[in-house]
């Protein structure tokens, strides 16, 4: 197993390198570039622009810019933002905790609710409960998330004033309760779609397993229903769902641009969006590269999880 993981990690290195090269090229195909922020200002004269270009290192040929970036990646500092002048690692570090709190909470909440609803509606197939969950899932999945978020904001924060409208904390507050109050709306916005889709996956996977012979055997042995479902069926039904869950993991790092914007949540999604807006190449590259690496890692994690869940799966 250890050798397998090591091999997977090693083979993914050239893959990641290729990904960074591709990202770098695509990024430079975006119209505008970092200097676009200045070009609309008549008082920025061509000679001023040349100096800015030189200081930002944009007058170097593209392949040199890539090599410089690669060198900074290998030394682990990821370079400095073209606009804020800060180290990119420092910028990510200051936005990451907020994103982890928001995405992590929403991940756990939607996983718990989604899996529970999925299992229950499979067990109670074609009952009122199942139809209810199915209807909810279709509505949740087809809701325009942006609209839904704004509606949550306007209803619960503006109209009813039950919950705060944005940010991580009220000014001057640091308490956990305050944090939870601020989390409710954005987590609801984020969870609605994932609960809807995960409950569907879980339901169909569970339905497949329930009809398997080993489940019938378990029942025949006289096990109570809770054990049959909980231990024998559920565990096996999880295997395909794990893939989907694992692929959602990198998203925890990437944040959610829309949710973070609507709820003024200072997270990685907004950092990425702002950086994209001004073509802050080092920040964009750092976030994308970390995301790509996390996709690779999550895939490996998924493979490991298969083996843990299903003894028939072995890696040599």
């Amino acid at each position: 197993m250890g050798a397998y993981i090591l091999r997977r990690l090693l083979t993914s290195l050239p893959l990641l390198l290729g990904v960074t090269l591709l990202l770098f090229c695509i990024m430079h195909l975006m119209p505008g570039g970092p200097l676009a922020a200045y070009t609309q200002n008549p008082r920025v004269r061509p000679e001023d622009l040349e100096k800015i270009k030189h200081i930002m290192g944009l007058d170097q040929p593209l392949y040199m810019q890539y090599l410089y970036w690669l060198r900074s990646l290998l030394t682990g500092n990821l370079g400095n933002s073209l606009f804020t002048g800060q180290a990119v690692t420092e910028m990510i570090a200051s936005f990451l905790p907020n994103t982890l709190v928001l995405m992590g909470t929403s991940f756990i909440v939607s996983l718990a609710i989604g899996v529970f609803l999925g299992v229950m509606s499979a067990v109670k197939q074609y009952t009122a409960f199942d139809f209810g969950v199915t209807t909810f899932a279709f509505i949740g999945y087809s809701l325009p998330v942006f609209w839904f978020g704004v509606m949550l904001l306007l209803l619960f924060a503006a109209q009813l004033k039950w919950l705060p409208s944005g940010g991580v904390h009220d000014l001057g507050e640091t308490g956990l309760l305050d944090l939870i109050e601020h989390l409710v709306l954005p987590v609801t916005m984020l969870s609605i779609v994932s609960v809807a889709s995960w409950s569907r996956y879980m339901r169909s996977s569970m339905l497949e397993v329930i009809r398997q012979e080993y489940v019938r055997t378990a029942r025949a042995k006289g096990l109570d229903e809770f054990r049959v479902i909980g231990r024998h069926a559920f565990r096996n039904a999880l295997v395909p769902v794990v893939t989907i869950i694992a692929l959602a993991l990198p998203g925890i790092f990437g944040g959610a641009i829309m949710t973070e914007t609507i709820f003024a949540w200072p997270g990685i999604g907004r950092l990425f969006f702002d950086s994209l807006g001004r073509s802050d190449y080092p920040v964009i590259m750092a976030i994308l590269t970390i995301s790509a690496a996390l996709v690779v890692v999550s895939n490996i994690l998924a493979d490991i999880a298969y083996a843990a869940l299903d003894p028939r799966i072995r890696y040599d």
């Binding site: 704004v150 904001l153 306007l154 924060a157 503006a158 004033k161 705060p164 409208s165 944005g166 940010g167 009220d170 000014l171 914007t261 609507i262 709820f263 003024a264 200072p266 907004r270």
Partner: peptide, 20 residues
């Protein structure tokens, strides 16, 4: 003076209404 960053206009509207 607190300079608060609120990217979304609906949110700014809500916060103004709430006195935030």
């Amino acid at each position: 003076i607190v300079f608060k960053i609120i990217p979304d206009e609906n949110n700014a509207y809500t916060q103004l209404q709430a006195g935030a």
